[in-house]
């Protein structure tokens, strides 16, 4: 049987943020994470997540008069949403099981 793909804590954090806000820039994710995502590593994580098929991205159209590179907006793929939902369900089952054993 194929194993359920795993998320690292940073990957999960990113997916949860994107589920909540739909589309974000890398720097916005760092700001919204409250310090849990770091500027230096978030782009590397985002790049890896794109490779794994967890994220899609598009370039933001440059505002008129703006200079520099266009920023990249990220959003989760269906695969990432399914994996997140499955892990959340698994966690609920585990927590319920632990409570039953305690009782």
């Amino acid at each position: 049987m194929e194993q359920l793909p795993k998320f690292s804590s940073a990957e999960r954090q990113i997916i949860e943020l994107l589920v909540e806000h739909e589309e974000l820039f890398g720097l916005q994710m760092v700001e919204l994470s409250g310090g849990r995502l770091k500027r230096g590593t978030v782009y590397v994580t985002l790049g890896r997540m794109q490779e794994k098929g967890y994220l899609e991205s598009r370039q933001e159209p440059l505002p008129e008069g703006a200079i520099g590179l266009p920023r990249r907006l990220y959003r989760p793929t269906g695969l990432a949403m399914r994996i997140l939902a499955t892990w959340k369900a698994a966690e609920q089952i585990y927590i319920r099981g632990a409570h039953t054993q305690e009782a």
Binding site: G26, S57, G68, R72
Partner: peptide, 9 residues
């Protein structure tokens, strides 16, 4: 994937 978005932001 890594440096372009970092520099753009």
């Amino acid at each position: 994937r890594v440096f372009n978005p970092l520099v753009a932001d």
